[in-house]
């Protein structure tokens, strides 16, 4: 479910923007996956090199 969720989000930039603004909630993910997703998205915010934000320790 996580994979399909990410693929759909990446294909729809509008959905991604809604997710980042809190207008869209993720469904079908476990609580831990949702927590991990939120933390990764928070790490991405404001980073000039988004790919580096994917590391475990920001």
């Amino acid at each position: 479910m996580l994979k399909e969720t990410v693929q759909k989000l990446m294909a729809d930039q509008g959905a991604m923007a809604q997710l980042e603004s809190g207008e869209l909630q993720l469904t079908g993910l476990s609580e831990t996956e949702q927590r991990a997703f939120a933390d990764v998205m928070n790490c991405r915010a404001g980073k000039s090199e988004p790919r580096m934000a994917m590391y475990w320790t920001a």
Partner: peptide, 10 residues
């Protein structure tokens, strides 16, 4: 990268 990072953190 998003997917892999979420999996890792999970």
């Amino acid at each position: 990268l998003l997917y892999s990072s979420v999996r890792m953190r999970t």
